[in-house]
């Protein structure tokens, strides 16, 4: 396995491993060896376990949350419209995604301040597309 651009090559593999049900992944080729091990989460109900690769860099504290589309459809912002700096309280509905004649609500998912709005009203969105970003306060 060529190790030019090692990180670039490993990142998708790591993501694939993280998304899989595998607990162990091993790749050997000549002198090269790579091993991913999934550790059990510390508590039941905690965030899904991430694969551990040594050395582990300290993860930055997450303060931003991206709200994404969970289905393919056309986005319509609902009133009161959110914009840069909007204060969101609780889990209020901020938009709907219209698909096959059905409107599915998009919720804020928690309190915070809107720091980015990434789609326009009437835009087609696909699964996982980032809609807006909320910063926790």
């Amino acid at each position: 396995m060529s190790l030019q651009r090692p990180l670039e090559r490993l990142r998708p593999l790591l993501a694939s491993f993280a998304a899989s049900d595998l607990t162990h992944f091993e790749l050997r080729d000549g002198d090269f060896a790579l091993e991913f091990i999934r550790r059990k989460p510390p508590h039941v109900g905690a965030a899904p376990a991430l694969p551990v690769v040594a050395p582990v860099a300290a993860a930055p504290e997450v303060t931003e949350r991206i709200v994404r589309a969970e289905l393919v459809g056309v986005l319509h912002w609902t009133k009161p419209l959110i914009s840069l700096g909007s204060q969101l309280e609780g889990d209020r509905q901020v938009a709907t995604i219209e698909a096959l004649g059905v409107n599915t609500p998009v919720r804020a998912g928690g309190s915070g301040v809107v720091t980015r709005v990434l789609v326009n009203d009437g835009d087609a969105v696909d699964y996982g597309q980032a809609l807006f970003v909320v910063e926790r306060v």
Partner: peptide
């Protein structure tokens, strides 16, 4: 993009 990796939520996701 129509869903996450597992087929039940992507390539078999008729609504998306």
């Amino acid at each position: 993009c129509i869903g996450p990796g597992p087929v039940a939520r992507s390539y078999l996701n008729i609504p998306n």
